[in-house]
Design a protein around this nucleic acid. Structure first.
Lengths: 351, 351
DNA sequence: TAGCGTTATGTAACCGGTTACATGATGCTC
DNA sequence: GAGCATCATGTAACCGGTTACATAACGCTA
């Protein structure tokens, strides 16, 4: 079933069929109706690849995600898909990439299948490779700051961590441990940096053993919780780099008989849905996942649809402190504004 | 940068370039090397749409998901993507469909963009619409039994629910409430059916108010937990149709001072990662998400690659009872075998 | 050295749309 | 009624690959 068959069935030419389909050239109302009727009757749908070949627009967006699990990623995909569909685009995902070379291979294979890509690559090594990888394809980096001339969006990880630490300090804590995310992960590193900045600024007690290793998984949090008792000096609060680890940690220390927040304050990051239902409900930092995905699509489409190349922009999304009872404070929500919220140009630099 | 430019640069014809690329016809080793070198130097990658147009293979698979959140969907996508990539396919997702008409529209738009689709449509209404929707595109139904001639895969929801109920009965419970999933959802309905079957078979006490409404969300579980006290007659156990609701419910009843499993046994379904870290760890029914996704891909590719149409098959995946302490039993794992595990032909019927 | 099979490569049609340009019909003005 | 603008439609080139078929070169045998 091709456009030519529809043309034959209606006694018109292929050009007219195409015009009706795309609402372009002038077409008599009667002709238009006849074409639509016949197309419907023959169940004809234009062939995506054929169309893509000469318009050079596939109406597909690629989404590349790192090798990680969890609710966070499903939310991002969901929001991206919703935003894309509003603009008549489809989403091609490729998840679970651990290694730059593999990602590059996928990126090449995407030539002619997508019009642009949204790349989420939280490895700190990303910026250096960004330019080489993405030079030939319009792209938006999600959650990895680019030092190249590529649009990018990020969460204010540092600001969120600082806000949480200040909250803990305000509650009187000076002995605060940090449960780290995977080394080399951009989000994890930024959150750690925020932790350290406040530890220094607020003259908190500092001990190397209070920077505990983790990898963002519930299990690593659980293991950290099991090992917690063995610390030579116990902190009064633990700030986990994400909620999943906080939940695992919570489960382990409660099994050991520790009471939260009575004996120990606990805080997380991400505010996943489950955190509200933890026992006790978990104080966390909310991350605007949906807004992030939608904005990435907007940005990408804007640069696809504008003829002239636009200067790359970097945008940081603010986070929000969600105070529940796991740190002993009364439940409330504090917005945490950051100065860099409005889009700011990244200063260009030679490659 | 097209194949013709590579041809010009090497002094060869486009046919030879194409042959080298696809490893087809006979090519001199020296020629092959020259082509590959030049392609690399010019950064040439074949154009997906052009290729798709005449091979009639896009090497893309579509995945249509319903309008639901949560870890379950991200796992399914992940596994599908991994399996697809092993076979050199890409995955085009379209999520958040609530309405058959909308889904049909997307399905049409996929013509010429994908070679086949994996459809997850847990609405009980799906089977009737399946044939009309999917007649023109190779498809595998995930988690919705088809009464039409379409391949399908499903979880043994009924068997899993029965196993859990028997476990509760074996622990001495006769007053068991069920926290339902959304009405019309296939998984939810099957789990409810399993609950009712055991209630009847084991002569459990029956009360209409013990079939509590829910919609699979944490929040609906939480609300059910808040309302729990108001029941005129309290059950000794609650079986939630999924873990997310169980977690919400747990949070609410614990806040009211109920002890689990002391005062009340609680069980879930899905065995999401978080369930292991609940306090108390949640007894649940494990669902083989990964295997399901991978198998769907295998099936779809098999029917794409075989020339002759193959008879549609329906396959049910077994579940596994995961016993933790939320029901008061000692922690252990029971496999629950079902008779229908091996693929069985769905009997064909006239449409 | 003619004849033939085998191997390496070239030529051009084709996939199913879009669109620049050509053509034909119609209505309006003077 | 000739000239011209406007509208509706048709013709055919083109997008960038693949592949059937043609051709050229080579080696081998009789």
């Amino acid at each position: 079933m091709t456009i030519r068959e529809v043309a034959r069935a209606t006694g018109l030419s292929v050009a007219t069929i195409s015009r009706v389909l795309n609402g372009l050239g002038p077409v008599r109302e009667e002709t238009r109706r006849k074409v639509l009727e016949e197309a419907e009757r023959l169940q004809w749908v234009p062939h995506g690849a054929a169309r893509a070949l000469n318009t050079k627009k596939t109406k597909n967006l690629g989404v590349l995600l790192p090798d990680m699990h969890g609710e966070f990623f499903s939310e991002v995909i969901r929001e991206i898909d919703l935003a894309a569909r509003r603009h008549d685009y489809h989403v091609l995902v490729s998840s679970s990439h651990s290694d730059p070379a593999e990602m590059q291979a996928v990126l090449r294979a995407l030539h002619g299948r997508v019009d642009g890509v949204i790349v989420m690559w939280p490895s700190s090594a990303a910026p250096r490779l960004g330019k080489q990888l993405l030079a030939r394809m319009p792209a938006v980096l999600l959650n990895g700051v680019s030092r190249d001339r590529i649009d990018s969006l990020a969460i204010d990880n540092h600001g969120g961590a600082v806000a949480m630490m200040r909250h803990l300090v305000a509650l009187g804590h000076r002995r605060i441990a940090f449960l780290e995310g995977p080394a080399g992960n951009y989000d994890a590193d930024e959150r750690l940096r925020g932790y350290r900045d406040v530890v220094r600024a607020a003259r908190c007690e500092r001990r190397p053993e209070w920077e505990i290793e983790g990898d963002f998984s519930e299990e690593s949090g659980f293991r950290a919780g099991e090992a917690f008792r063995a610390l030579r000096s116990l902190p009064s609060a633990v700030f986990a780099a994400n909620d999943a680890m906080a939940m695992g940690f919570l489960s382990a220390v409660q099994a050991e008989g520790l009471r939260v927040p009575g004996d120990l304050a606990l805080a997380g990051f991400d505010d996943i849905p489950m955190s509200r239902y933890a026992a006790p409900p978990l104080t966390s930092v909310r991350v605007p996942i949906g807004a992030l995905g939608a904005r990435a699509v907007e940005r990408l489409l804007a640069s696809l649809e504008s003829a002239s190349p636009r200067p790359p922009r970097h945008e940081t999304f603010p986070t929000e402190l969600i105070v529940r009872v796991s740190c002993g404070a009364p439940s409330q929500t504090l917005r945490h504004p950051i100065s860099a919220f409005n889009a700011t140009n990244v200063k260009e630099k030679k490659s």
